[in-house]
């Protein structure tokens, strides 16, 4: 179990990687971008990138804007 902050809220991750987090949030297959501790984690690395206690994660997507 890993304690993270995701999009500003505390969260407990049951797996170990960014891909596990995306799956836990039921966001698989969605068009999004992930940042861990202010560094982008490319999609190709989601499966390998390990998350650790205290990591700060941002998950973003595109919404309407001008």
């Amino acid at each position: 179990m890993t304690s993270l902050t995701v999009n500003g809220d505390p969260m407990t991750l049951e797996g170990t990687t960014v891909a596990d987090l995306v799956a836990q949030l039921q966001l698989q297959g969605r068009r999004l971008a992930v940042e861990v501790n202010r560094d982008i984690v490319p999609k190709s690395e989601h499966g390998q990138h390990r998350l650790y206690d205290g990591d700060v994660v941002e998950i973003v997507h595109a919404i309407g804007g001008g």
Partner: peptide
């Protein structure tokens, strides 16, 4: 066409519609 970049809503249902 312009879009904005914002935090993904974490409580969403799978398959919720997406602008793109």
């Amino acid at each position: 066409v312009t879009v904005a970049v914002r935090r993904t809503n974490l409580g969403q249902e799978p398959g919720e519609p997406n602008l793109l």
